[in-house]
């Protein structure tokens, strides 16, 4: 099946292939391979020690990793943290930075003796095993700032999501910030959260393609009643349903990658989160008991889909945000808001 894609150039196809090859490595070696190949620094200018490239390049690599159900921090560090730093005119091309952009934070900072001291709790922080630093959004007066702190300066409580991906609680007790960067006035906490949402959306779209292919392949080979179950009309329709959700998710992500901004990020996360729920359920139903087995690859994908659907803002939260942003306009026009979104904040 041909892929609906934002622009699969030769280079990007090669990039995806490289990531696929790398993903055969063990977890810690995979991170090393991503670092040493420069994959981890895509999106950072070469003049600043990065690998160059853009969001679409990164998305291709993130999607490929997600489809392999591998734990690597590319989505969090390169796509989210490096992007956030870039908004503040800063780049970091040797150390990994974990973005603490979930909704459950409670953080404050005070300035003393020419330094900023951070206290409070950051929850659900991803990528803390790969990262040396954490990036914490903090409101100071009317503007939002990003505090960069060593993870080692926090009290660390490691947890994981359904897929076993690390999601840590970091408690800071007057820890000194290495840097305190002010976000440009047009950005605030919601933009950071939405960027994390888009990262999860890209991952979901990658995992959904893998779930689709796995489910189709299973249904073609698994025989019952003397024929492949894919030939049962009820099952065939379930395969189509999984394919529908994979396509919808891919389109939502493609829209956000080609026309970046808060509005399209919100759309991408809401659409992919619903697609994830629906396709995961259908894929399990097609697989029967086999999908429940730890040895079979479906579970590694669906547990990620379940987790990613909830992280970075769940479907209902973003739908509500879009709907309210739409309705707060004077005489809201549905079609006009689709063609020319009311929230044109560019990222």
């Amino acid at each position: 099946m041909s892929q609906l894609d934002w622009s699969l150039t030769e280079e990007r196809l090669a990039l995806a292939k490289t990531v696929l090859d790398m993903s055969a490595a063990l977890d810690d070696q995979l991170q090393l391979a991503l670092d040493e190949s420069g994959m981890s620094w895509i999106g950072i200018e070469e003049s600043e020690g990065g690998s160059g490239g853009d969001d679409a390049d990164l998305a291709i690599a993130i999607r490929a990793l997600a489809g392999q159900a591998r734990n690597a921090s590319l989505a969090e560090t390169a796509f989210v943290s490096a992007w956030a730093l870039r908004q503040c005119g800063h780049s970091e091309a040797s150390r990994h930075i974990a973005p603490a952009f979930s909704t459950a934070n409670d953080l404050q900072a005070v300035e003393r003796e020419g330094r900023w001291w951070v206290s409070g709790t950051a929850r659900q922080v991803p990528a803390t095993s790969a990262a040396q630093l954490a990036l914490l959004p903090i409101a100071l007066g009317d503007s939002w700032h990003l505090a960069l702190l060593p993870i080692s300066s926090a009290e660390i409580e490691e947890e994981d999501n359904l897929a076993g991906e690390i999601r840590t609680t970091l408690r800071f007790n007057s820890a000194p910030a290495e840097l305190m960067l002010e976000l440009p006035a047009h950005l605030n906490w919601i933009d950071l959260h939405a960027r994390l949402g888009l990262a999860r959306a890209i991952q979901i779209s990658g995992a959904l393609l893998a779930v689709r292919d796995l489910t189709v392949s299973y249904a073609r080979t698994r025989e019952q009643f003397g024929k492949p179950i894919a030939e049962q009309q009820a099952v065939a329709h379930m395969l189509a349903s999984v394919a529908e959700q994979a396509l919808l998710a891919e389109a939502a992500v493609a829209t956000a990658i080609s026309t970046p901004g808060l509005w399209n990020n919100a759309i991408a996360k809401s659409v992919t989160s619903r697609a994830a729920r629906s396709a995961a359920a259908t894929a399990h139903q097609v697989h029967g008991a086999m999908g429940m087995s730890e040895e079979y690859p479906l579970g590694a994908l669906t547990t990620r889909l379940w987790s990613w659907a909830e992280e970075g803002g769940r479907a209902e939260a973003w739908e509500n945000w879009i709907g309210r942003r739409f309705m707060e306009q004077d005489q809201p026009q549905l079609w006009e808001s689709i063609v020319n979104p009311p929230e044109s904040r560019h990222q």
């Binding site: 396509l247 389109a251 939502a252 739908e319 509500n320 709907g323 309705m327 809201p332 689709i338």
Partner: peptide, 28 residues
């Protein structure tokens, strides 16, 4: 049907979902 809807309408999220899906259909 939009004129007259309250800003706190419980259906805001449903309209948000509509916008999100139509946007994705257009891309496809």
């Amino acid at each position: 049907l939009l004129p007259g809807l309250g800003h706190s309408s419980p259906t805001a999220a449903d309209l948000g979902r509509c916008i999100a899906e139509i946007t994705s259909f257009r891309t496809i």
